[in-house]
Each structure stands twice: as structure tokens, then as C-alpha cells.
Design a protein around this nucleic acid. Structure first.
Lengths: 244, 244
DNA sequence: CGACTCTTTGATCCTGATCAACACCGGTGG
DNA sequence: CCACCGGTGTTGATCAGGATCAAAGAGTCG
């Protein structure tokens, strides 16, 4: 809501993956697979995006897909009636923006949560690379297929506590896959974002977290939550999640 | 529920797209685009699948992706607790099964609604074709991207009547795109399938259809519904749908 | 015709939304 | 340093949309 300039076209630099903390676990650059090393040649770095600022928004021309380099971001759709829908939260190394493939503009927005750095993969460079090296295209397709499956899993309707538990466990698992601390989950987004994403009222999110704390499942502090009883939490949430 | 043999590996024949009713509108064979004609060389035809029979199910090895040739089918996920979730209904020419790309087995089931014919695209032939002809891979990616967007649209939470209206309008629009009758919608699936898909109780589906009929929006007969006031229905449902 | 399944209709209940008030924290300016 | 303020999060009270329970009606197939 604060400043609303679009960072999309500004401050692009050729990036050096060397030295990136997430090099080994970065989906966007293929986790170091031989045939995908070309991805590291075409990546650009986007200037730091401040809290609440847009990386892109609906109708922004579709020129590139992105990954988080450091920080966290959310994808938001604006439906016909103007109401926001938080689609996803993005962690470092996770690709997003692939949903605009085949269009000439993005259909939803990506907004930084806290100060975030992004990596940018220009779509024309990606196409050129993919034509030379089919493995790149298959990699993209695998990422997209995983996104479809991830979304399929959440398409069931489950009680609010199950959804909340699944959300926390999912975040924890994704952090584990990035070799980040899977016990302590920073939640830089607002409660209303979590609520919106889980299709709950903010009040309900608050109540559920309080209840989970009362049950000794989690600890809560200003920056996020700490998982205290991951086993029970997972048993609750696994009514919706399977192994990704 | 009836017979449960898997038709996946049986009765495969080289197909001839020539003569297929949906040749011009078939997403799976690229709507006749030059660079995608190779798709018509690798397609196979699957033996007729009877009502309620499985085309594939979870844990079926992932060997091919499919399209409906004639009839209708549903995709169903079985979540951890064994409860079914109807993910999608498939119309002729619509590709499905792409969500298993990158895995060695399918994660959900496809079940025939009525007697249905399927086209089969073996994944190894598809990969070979895609390596020779990058346009094929881009086409696949565009189809997947469209599926992601389609799913994003439905991820908001809307009142039951909006969801129902959106469902009917979506079906109608997809039929129009296939040059099928967009006013009369055959609904070969059970009410429980529609309910499950829309995350409603079967009773609610029944009540909503009855209410819509009372408002003069639709007519109901045994094989499906007829749209009588598409404008009002669309205004209701467009709170969730945008142009695909 | 009769058994069965699917759908429709009616009555009641419950989860989570909404409305409302308060607590907390960070920042700003006196 | 502290009072004030706005935004965010928590807690409580009430309400309603849709689920559930229950039963009857309508097709379908043997």
C-alpha cells in the first residue's frame, strides 16, 4: 500500500549466482543440474524491493519470470469485484510468474513482504535457451506441474484448524528443503494476508494461533511462530497435505 | 464404482485425427497450428471407457497424457484421509494428466462419465517430438499455464450461488469454444460430483438449481440444464470468473 | 413389480463470519 | 522522556450460510 512504483524494469544487473546462499537448493536454476547451468547465464538481479512494494501487477507486460533471492513475497489476484485473493507466499529459490506463459501481460500481482531481492529470468532468453537445450523446457514444465499439484492438494475443503496446520507444516517443509530453520517460521505478512490465503477471517486466524499455543503446539512472537509439537501439528494438517 | 479395470494399457490403436469432430478446436493437437502437426502423428486411441470406469488411478505409472475425444470425464484426487476431491471435469479436446509431469506415477484418478473415448499421447514420444520441435514444448507449457490460471480463479471463497453460477457459465463457455451447444449443458456426472467439486453439500446443489429454475435462469431436465438467462447467470458468476 | 440409487425437500445445528471493543506496538512530536 | 495516535492483532458476543440429519419422491434395472 505504501509506495507503488513498479520495480520491474529498473535496476537490472547481470547477476552472479556465485555467492548466493540458496545456490544448491534453487529450483529456478535447477539445483545445479548440468543441463540447466545455462539458467545461471541469463538470470538478472532486480533492485531491492521494499515492504509492500510491487514487483509487478496485473497488466504489467509479461517479460520475465522471477524467483525470490532473499526475503519473502506474496502473489495476489484481483478478482472482477476488486477483492484481493492471496494465492501464494514465495520463499527463496521458488519460481513464480509462470502462470502468465502464453499471455502478453501478468494477471496478478507480486508484492514484497519486508525488503526482498528478486532474480529475473527474461522470457525471450529463456525461450532461446530452451530451444537449444530441451532439458530447460522440461525443467520449467516440472516446476509448473508441481505448482498444479500443490494447488490441487489445497483444493479440498477442510475445517479451519486443519487448513491452518497444513499451512504451517507446508511452510516448515519448504524451509527445510531450503536448509533454513524449519522450526522457527518468520511470518512477515500480516494476519489478514494469512487469513485471506486460507479463506478465513483474520479473527479466526488469531483465535487458531492462540488455541495452538494453548495446546502447546506452537510458540508465538512478533516475528513469527515456532513449532513446538510438529508431530501433532502434522497429523492435523496431513488431512490435506501429502508428500510434495 | 462399477467395473474397475484400468483401460490404460489396453486396446491402443494408432489414431487418425482425420474425421474427429473436434479437430479444429482440439487443444491437445494445437488447433491445427503448423509446428504442432507432429502431435497428430503420435496420438493413440484408447478403447472405449464405460461409465464409472477408470482411465487411470493414483499410482498408475505415468506413461502418457490424455485428452477426451468424445464424452466427458472427471479428475479425482484421493486425499490422505481417503476422501475424494473432484478436481475437474474434462470436455473433448481438453488435455489432462499434465500434473504428473516429473513424477513416475499419477497422483489422481480419471473416471469416465458415461461412455467416453480418450486420445493418448505417450510421454516418451512427446519428449522426443518436443526436443525436435520446441514449439511443442511451448504449447504444453501454455496449456499448463492456462490450467494454473483457471485454478487460481476458483481459489477465492465465494457464496454458494456464485460458485454454482460460475460453474455453469464456465462449462457453457468451454462448450462454446468447442462449437458445441452452449445453451444446453449435459451433466452426466452425479449431483454429488458437482457438489464435491464446488465444495458444497449435494443438498445445496439441488436447492440452488431449484432456486435458479424458480428465478427463470435455467431449465432442468434429466440430462442436464438449459441456460435461459445467461446474462443474469453470468453477472452472478462473474464475481469469480474472468475471461480465460 | 420391487429393490436400489439418486435427487429433492424439510428441519435443525454448527462452524466460522461479522460486529464491536480493547490491547499492543512503533512512531512522532511536544 | 512521555503523551498521543494510527495501524495491527486479540478477545468477546452475536449471527447466518451452508452442513447435517431425516424422509419422501423419482428414475432405473433386474
Amino acid at each position: 500500500m505504501s509506495s507503488e512504483r513498479s520495480a520491474c524494469q529498473q535496476g537490472l544487473q547481470p547477476a552472479h549466482c556465485t555467492g548466493c546462499h540458496h545456490l544448491d537448493t534453487c529450483d529456478a536454476t535447477g539445483r545445479g543440474a548440468e543441463a540447466l547451468l545455462g539458467l545461471r547465464q541469463i538470470v538478472q538481479r532486480v533492485a531491492l524491493v521494499g515492504d509492500g512494494e510491487y514487483l509487478y501487477r496485473p497488466m504489467t507486460p509479461f517479460r520475465a519470470i522471477y524467483a525470490v533471492r532473499s526475503g519473502m513475497a506474496k502473489s495476489v489476484a484481483l478478482d472482477a469485484s476488486g477483492r484481493e485473493q492471496v494465492l501464494d507466499f514465495h520463499l527463496p529459490g521458488e519460481w513464480f510468474g509462470l502462470d502468465a506463459i502464453g499471455l502478453d501481460h501478468h494477471e496478478n500481482a507480486v508484492i514484497s513482504l519486508g525488503r526482498t531481492q528478486f532474480c529475473r529470468f527474461p522470457i525471450d532468453a529463456l525461450m532461446a535457451l530452451g530451444s537449444r537445450e530441451p532439458a530447460v523446457q522440461w525443467h520449467l514444465m516440472q516446476v509448473m506441474a508441481r505448482q498444479i499439484r500443490h494447488r490441487q492438494l489445497r483444493s479440498g475443503d477442510h475445517p479451519s484448524d486443519v487448513r491452518m496446520a497444513a499451512f504451517l507444516i507446508d511452510l516448515s517443509d519448504r524451509r527445510a528443503a531450503l536448509f533454513l530453520d524449519a522450526r522457527h517460521l518468520p511470518l512477515p505478512m500480516q494476519r489478514t494476508d494469512i487469513a485471506n490465503h486460507l479463506q478465513l477471517a483474520p479473527e479466526t486466524v488469531s483465535r487458531l494461533l492462540t488455541r495452538f499455543r494453548g495446546q502447546g503446539l506452537i510458540g508465538i512472537d512478533r516475528q513469527g511462530v515456532t513449532l513446538l509439537d510438529g508431530v501433532t501439528l502434522r497429523r492435523l494438517g496431513c488431512q490435506v497435505l501429502e508428500a510434495a
